[in-house]
Design a protein around this nucleic acid. Structure first.
Lengths: 104, 104
DNA sequence: GCAACACATAAGCATACACTTATGTGTTGC
DNA sequence: GCAACACATAAGTGTATGCTTATGTGTTGC
């Protein structure tokens, strides 16, 4: 929810991997463990941190809990980053165009 | 330099305050301490972390060391964030326009 | 040279954090 | 009901981190 939580959440490499996986589409907690060599409780704890930070949101589906990227979290980072737009180098022009395109 | 270092650096509230101060212009280490109730070594250590992350850069000026925002660090965050552009909500359109403006 | 200053580094310590194993909660299907 | 499953929570532990005090390094001006 706050910047503090967001940056703390993303400071951990495992959580960033999880978040990147979710960028490809929603997945349940077990599927997220694939290839990460991490225990089930550890994943559950990581997901709790990401959820508390507003970076992901969950959706119960039977016994499974599907996780997906929460656009609000992404927006928070964007808003924070916008404060430093005076320092964006020119070579980031391409990115800027991409962001513009998203609004259709 | 790497994402890991950047997010770790920004995970600390004191370092975020320092970084925001520098967003207003370059300052030396002593000036950065104003209003932060932190020891001189602590500030020096925080600046070392921000520097290692590529978020700030230094410039010796006599006995003083001036610190300023390093555009490369900002760009790194922007590049990372761009991977999640599919999740940017529409209400961030204004930010997107701001970013576009920066390229003149 | 040397005293005063601005900052960096070293060493030690208390707390935060990511992990583990063990157990609890809720859902499915027989 | 109850066994199997998916996930969350509890409790404990080693390590990372941010702080402190003490000391080192480099610059200024007399």
């Amino acid at each position: 929810m706050m910047e503090a939580d967001i940056f703390k959440a993303l400071a951990d490499p495992t959580r960033r991997k999880v978040f990147e996986k979710l960028a490809g589409g929603s997945l349940n907690a077990s599927a997220l463990r694939d290839g990460l060599d991490i225990s089930q409780p550890a994943m559950s704890q990581h997901l709790a941190v990401l959820r508390a930070a507003g970076l992901v949101r969950e959706q119960r589906q039977g016994r499974f809990v599907n996780y997906e990227v929460d656009p609000d979290g992404i927006a928070s980072i964007g808003t924070w980053l916008a404060r430093y737009r005076a320092y964006w180098p020119k070579r980031i022009a391409a990115l800027s165009d991409l962001l513009k395109d998203m609004d259709q």
